[in-house]
Amino acid sequence: MNKKRGKMRLSWNRKCCICMLPAIMGTLIFSLIPFFRVLYYSMINNQFEKSFALISNYRRVLENEYFRIAFKNSIMLILICVPILVVLAIVISLILVFGKMKQKGIQISFILPMVIPTASIAVIWRQFFSDIENIFPVYLLFIWKNIGICIILLTAVFASVDKEIFEAAYMEGAGPMKIHLHMTLPISAPTIFFTVLLSIVNSFRIFKESYLYYGTNYPPDYGYTLQYYMNNHFLKLNYQNLSVSAVFNTLFAGMIIAVGLIFIRRFQR
């Protein structure tokens, strides 16, 4: 009987590999294989003729005025919002960890904005900021929504910093500002970089917030981001333009993610 069992059974390691199978199959079917079709669509002129038109497709999209505005706005969001968000998160986390305030419960309260449905919040945001005609309400919404996860990540790493080195520095007369600037932050650099990366990635996702805030497919020019561009072409089902911008977006996001991850790796060593 023992012999039979041995024959029938797969090795443990094999079984662990099989555990991954459902997820990998799903990802292949719904994301990776279709992505190659997207690549293919971005290279042909239309679904019927199917002749090669890579260069003209890309040129048409990249020279489009709206695509450019969208790209510029997306970059602006990264350059303005992400630094504010991360610095704010660092300051709050430092106060939470090293300040004398009781921190129990405060940390958890920052999760609330993460789980609250955006639709409900965008609605009230519209009421508050109905007469402001610039992008800042959306920026504020972005920061409000994303600061929670940053604070959670940062407080965790700040709390794990060895307290003894502070005392040594304190003995030598360094003020709290100096200690944190020269010791806490460099020690936590990998996590801080991860927070920056995560915020950039989340800034690609601001679309839903912004869309619900403006409540239209065609927001004012300053609010028009790459995601609007893609969304509008989605509604028209213009596969070529859509594919080109998807590939472009993938490369753009992929580049930032790759650079970010490599940077974090470096710092961990």
């Binding site: 990635v201 679309f207 859509l242 594919s243 998807a246 996001a253």
Partner: peptide, 14 residues
């Protein structure tokens, strides 16, 4: 980490 708009199109085609 990919933006949703990027993954939506492959999902849609699939």
């Amino acid at each position: 980490m990919m933006p949703l708009q990027v993954t939506l199109l492959p999902n849609y085609i699939g």
